[in-house]
């Protein structure tokens, strides 16, 4: 009950922030507002009991994305220009896509129904045995870190490699800029 209430308030705040993001023309403020958006959606995810997703959202959305967006703002202008075309066509496309997505959710099982396929496979086993087998109080964390440990290790390797690649690319770019001045 109280969880639904908290989520309703948080989602209302999210809608308010999104309206602000759409209406503001100062991109610097938009980046800051999207950081706030990430923090609030992370709180929503925590209330929905998806702690690992919330942690990822806070780290990626509020941390790295803000820094990367600021780096992009350094390369462009911080004021958004007025759109040259009328917003009718994009609005139409967005509305139709939204209606199609909502229509698609009608076929999904209702929120929290226990007899979905995803809950009848190995989920019951994890829920029963995870604490005694792994000693991790959170079932999702135990699945990610223990039962699917090799999968997570592979993902971490991929992310680590990508990070090294980005670091190397940025380093080279900065050195060249230092030598040649403002060539891009």
């Amino acid at each position: 009950m109280i969880e639904a209430l908290i989520n309703m308030v948080l989602l209302t705040l999210l809608a308010a922030i999104m309206i602000g993001v759409v209406r503001l023309r100062n991109l610097f403020a938009v980046v800051i507002l999207s950081s706030a958006y990430s923090f609030i959606i992370a709180t929503v995810l925590i209330v929905l009991d998806a702690v690992d997703v919330a942690m990822t959202e806070a780290a990626v959305g509020a941390g790295i994305s803000t820094v990367l967006m600021l780096a992009v703002l350094f390369l462009t202008k911080t004021e958004e220009q007025k759109p040259k075309h009328s917003p009718a066509l994009p609005l139409f496309v967005a509305t139709v896509t939204g209606i199609a997505l909502i229509y698609g959710t009608l076929d999904l099982p209702a929120f929290g129904v226990p007899d979905q396929p995803i809950h009848t496979h190995v989920g019951a086993y994890y829920l029963e045995k995870s604490v005694e087998e792994t000693g991790i109080p959170n079932v999702v964390s135990s699945v990610l870190a223990s039962y699917r440990g090799f999968d997570t290790l592979g993902e971490t390797t991929v992310v680590f490699t990508a990070g090294i690649g980005v670091l190397l690319l940025l380093r080279r770019n900065r050195r060249r800029n230092g030598k040649n001045g403002e060539t891009s």
Partner: peptide
Amino acid sequence: ALGLAVARALLGPTVFDRMLAVNSIGNFA
């Protein structure tokens, strides 16, 4: 308090108001 901070982040005339508000939103989170 979160609602008040969001209001400040949306209304804030300067960038620093918004940034302080977002910092508070993180703290409230």
